[in-house]
Design a protein around this nucleic acid. Structure first.
Length: 604
RNA sequence: GCACCCGUAGCUCAAUUGGAUAGAGCGUCGGCCUCCGGAGCCGAAGGUUAUAGGUUCAAGUCCUAUCGGGUGUACCA
């Protein structure tokens, strides 16, 4: 149980007795929060102002009356009224020590499963197969993976689904290339490599640099014709599509392995293709979809289908589900997907981790899904901003090309290794004894630090805003970065190595915790806030609440580390007590980084 | 035109969803540390939260208007 819930249990009977409107008690209880300022105690209750207003009494008096009714207990040091009626709550150090030892004995570090267990489908990553993964897929993949891990840790059932773009123009390119430019021998030996070559080759022939749905001259015309034949069910092209798909999926695997991301399902656009006609028929039959301008559309979120130019200028557009030429659109696919997911997994919520620019699409989609009958499902567009370069324009390579994920990760690992080597050199010149590590271990450090930096940079800001991709900042040794957290972890581990602690024995008979300094106390309070941080990240779908927590923890640990000798503590009891804290800090950092998809190393 | 997002310290970002004196990192200035990993610690300067109103006991947060920036907007996904 978290500390807030403990406080809420304590105050609930008193508020129920006092409140004019009992229905508001949960709202009042929600007003118990960690203290904004450490001078005000550990937690603060802000309900006396609202309650005083409702009762027509002075908030300070209400606060005093509530404090007077608190039952005797072992854990509250003080409850005092301050300012307009804040109740400042301070916990007894002995109680904190006891609680922290309890969570140190818990493999889940005191985090209990969520009160209401739900089933989530999370749609994330969604690359176009047959093309290399590029920087545009990074955020969806990383944020989606973090949410999967966080919600699972909370005990929820989570189904991750990679909604692949596996039915688009890129297959026209591959089919065209295969028919006219293939090296059959090369294809036999390594289809993945040959298809990748063909894709680039044809794009170069057509001189396409960006989007491939328009322009590109005769070559692209031919490619689009091949795509059309595929979509029309042409036997030859469908056969080629089936032949290419395994190789295309194989192309994606190395990147996901490097990112340490495993997605449960990969049901792409092609999977839903056979269902689309029936979706349109059903929506028409139910009167949700209508014909407009020769196409079939579903109305906008307000339920309106603009009928003339004037309306069109001030209304949101409807969503097309069947174009004039008879082809279906991604809205059709998305509706079919919702139906399939609902039928198959019966989720309570469906989350879409997709670029913020698609907000209007999802607004319209969700409104129509609800009209269609899925009105008991929570739909969420987990929107995120764009990745920009230092010039604040979309992040690109120096010559203006798309940044491929493999190159990006190579660079991050390279810089991770440089960081290690710089640290090694500096410590050696300071006369420290530094262990000589094998090339394999060094590579692991490089990748853990490099990839961790990329992920953490992405997850540590508010997801909805754009962020500037900057290797120097994300790999910085100070500030709120993965590197800093990994370093804090390594320092903790170093203490156990240096002290030659037998960890198995240590954990088997965990020493008592005693709090003797303000720094120890602050660290313990921060450790005990872990459940609240995880709950907040899970219910708001905001991973950066976890990085914020880690940052506060790392700072509290630094202050503690500076002020409190561990191995050379004054007494053996104090040494053991502090070792419990050091061990717990390490485990909390490792666990929270794990929830973000980031690894730790013992030395760096 | 309409809709959505954003505007917080020189820069990059927070602010526990309406709570107390708006906080961190970088950068700047000053101090500490022969000590378990100096990738450290303490302190200072830096703000009319774009602007003007409004709601509230309480507003960076909610409402209205204005200014400035971004994004989207009927047959790509």
């Amino acid at each position: 149980m978290s500390l807030v819930s403990a406080f809420r249990e304590l105050f609930e009977p008193i508020l129920t007795e006092l409140a004019a409107d009992r229905a508001k008690v949960p709202d009042y209880l929600a007003m118990i929060k960690p203290a904004a300022n450490a001078d005000h105690g550990d937690y603060q209750a802000n309900f006396a102002m609202a309650l005083g207003k409702a009762l027509g009494q002075k908030p300070q008096d209400v606060a005093k009356a509530i404090i007077a009714k608190l039952p005797p207990n072992e854990w509250l040091e003080s409850a005092t009224v301050a300012g307009p009626g804040f109740i400042n709550l301070k916990l007894k150090s002995a109680y904190l020590a006891d609680r922290v030892r309890q969570i140190a004995q818990d493999t889940r570090l005191g985090v209990t499963p969520a009160a209401k267990l739900r089933t989530f489908v999370i749609d994330y990553s969604g690359p176009n197969v047959a093309k290399p993964l590029h920087v545009g897929h990074l955020r969806s993949t990383i944020i989606g993976d973090a949410l999967v891990r966080i919600l699972r840790f909370c005990g929820h059932t989570v189904i991750g689904d990679n909604h692949l773009g596996d039915w688009g123009t890129q297959f026209g390119i591959l089919i065209y290339g295969y028919k006219h430019h293939r090296d059959e021998a090369a294809f036999q030996v390594d289809p993945v490599k040959e298809l990748a070559r063909l894709y680039i080759h044809v794009r170069n022939l057509a001189k396409v640099t960006g989007e491939e749905d328009e322009g590109g001259g005769e070559v692209m015309e031919a490619c689009r014709a091949e795509t059309a034949k595929l979509h029309a069910g042409g036997e030859e092209n469908v056969g080629l599509w089936k032949k290419f798909m395994p190789a295309c999926l194989e192309m994606l695997r190395p990147i996901y392995d490097r990112l340490d991301v495993k997605i449960d399902h990969a049901l792409g656009e092609s999977f839903y293709n056979p269902m689309l006609a029936a979706v349109v028929d059903d929506l028409l039959a139910k009167g949700i979809a209508v014909e407009s301008k020769g196409a079939v559309v579903v109305p906008n979120a307000k339920g309106v289908v603009p009928q003339n130019d004037e309306q069109q200028a001030k209304e949101e557009p409807p969503a097309l589900i069947r174009k004039r030429d008879g082809a279906f659109t991604y809205t059709t696919t998305d509706l079919a997907t919702i139906k399939y997911r609902a039928d198959t997994w019966k989720p309570d919520a469906m989350l879409y981790v997709v670029d913020a620019r698609q907000a209007l699409h999802f607004k319209t989609l969700f409104a129509n899904a609800k009209r269609w009958g899925y009105d008991n499902t929570e739909f969420q567009h987990i929107a995120f901003g764009s990745i920009l370069g230092r010039d604040k324009k979309p992040y690109r390579t120096r010559d203006g090309g798309t940044v491929e994920l493999s190159a990006l990760l190579d660079e991050a690992a390279k810089l991770g290794l440089q960081g290690y080597e710089a640290s090694y050199a500096e410590r050696t010149t300071h006369g420290h004894e530094v262990a000589e590590l094998s090339p394999a271990v060094k590579r692991e450090i490089a990748e853990t630090v490099g990839y961790g930096a990329v992920k953490y940079a992405d997850l540590s800001g508010n997801r909805t805003s754009d962020y500037i991709f900057d290797y120097d900042k994300m790999l910085a040794l100070e500030g709120n970065t993965a590197t800093y957290m990994q370093y804090a972890y390594a320092r903790c581990r170093s203490i156990f190595r240096k002290g030659e602690i037998d960890e198995t024995a240590f954990h088997a008979k965990l020493p008592a915790v005693v709090i003797t300094t303000p720094q120890e106390r602050a660290l313990v309070v921060q450790l005990l806030k872990l459940p609240e941080a995880i709950e907040s990240a899970a219910t708001e779908y905001l991973p950066h609440h976890l990085t914020g927590y880690l940052w506060d923890l790392a700072k509290a640990y630094s202050v503690f580390f500076e002020a409190c000798q561990v191995l050379k503590a004054e007494t053996p009891e104090l040494r053991d007590s502090r070792l419990v804290l050091v061990d717990l800090v390490a485990r909390v950092i490792r666990q929270v980084l794990n929830l973000l998809g980031i690894r730790t190393v013992e030395r760096m």
